[in-house]
Design a binder for these strands. Sequence first.
DNA 1: ATGTATGCAAACCATTTGCAATGAC
DNA 2: GTCATTGCAAATGGTTTGCATACAT
Lengths: 170, 170
Amino acid sequence: MEETILKKARQTLTNYLEENKCRKTPERFAILDAVYAIDGHFTLEQLGQRMEQDNFRVSKATLYNAINLFMKLRLVVRHHFQQTTMYEACFNDDYQCHQICTVCGKVMELPGNMLSDMIAATKLRRFHPLGGSMYIYGVCSTCQAKITRQRGKKRISKMNNNPKNEQRKS
Amino acid sequence: MEETILKKARQTLTNYLEENKCRKTPERFAILDAVYAIDGHFTLEQLGQRMEQDNFRVSKATLYNAINLFMKLRLVVRHHFQQTTMYEACFNDDYQCHQICTVCGKVMELPGNMLSDMIAATKLRRFHPLGGSMYIYGVCSTCQAKITRQRGKKRISKMNNNPKNEQRKS
DNA sequence: ATGTATGCAAACCATTTGCAATGAC
DNA sequence: GTCATTGCAAATGGTTTGCATACAT
């Protein structure tokens, strides 16, 4: 995570807080720092743990409070993957693409610019777009390979079709 | 909702159940019928209510059981809008686009083919896409108009920036 | 007859809310 | 000093689970 990005994110937060007569509490900035220190997706739990490691304990209420604010300011996005909720820092990166394997649940990130280009090219009448998320579902190469191999052995293709297999967390 | 679509969806379900030695229970088909009888988004609560109106009561566990299966078969998709979870029938409509106003929370559906075209055009190395969802966030025309009007009156632009305003359900 | 699916209630996880105490301004 | 923000605990909403019963096969 680049230094500059964090600095800009902090500035965005500061601007908002000042503009709206909100308080610049140490918690808010500490949480923002933690968010931007994590690379990639994280749960709220993980965020809290990370902060404790840095000797800064905050309540869940405050975490949610801050995260909600950050989402509003588009400093953070939330994703609902299979059974888990994941957050992600997203400063200056308003468009994100995710590739999700419906068999193993693995999530891959793709460059967001393909999405922004596409939205820019689309005529959205009477709507001013500010960002977006895209989720592409399918089968990853690893699972595809497994399936092909299995199909070779058994004719009754059960193992990759039974929904119960994937209703549990990995 | 077209008759044919429901018929095909039922066939997909039948195929799956037979293929996987699952039971063709009346509940599963009744739930599928209800899902496809509803036009657009619905909550699980609403789905249950709709079924009760049709004199077919099912437990929540069974509703979730069926819905999870349908999601797996891509007969249904789930969306997490602001504070509520909404489901949607999606047979033969594997790509859906949603336009979400970040001010009032209104959700508009857009034709999914723009998304499928785009994904088709993208080289996803080593990934076999089966469907996708896209969410475009921004400000709708109504809210845009309100904001412009407000800005004219007050210079302190607070009303559309305070996150607390939108954390409540409309 | 067998074992899968259902219904119910309890458990669980993510998130919000109410309220008293703290601290930024 | 004032009021927004925090922390805590309780409440809420969505979803899953465990277990006894029902029923599709």
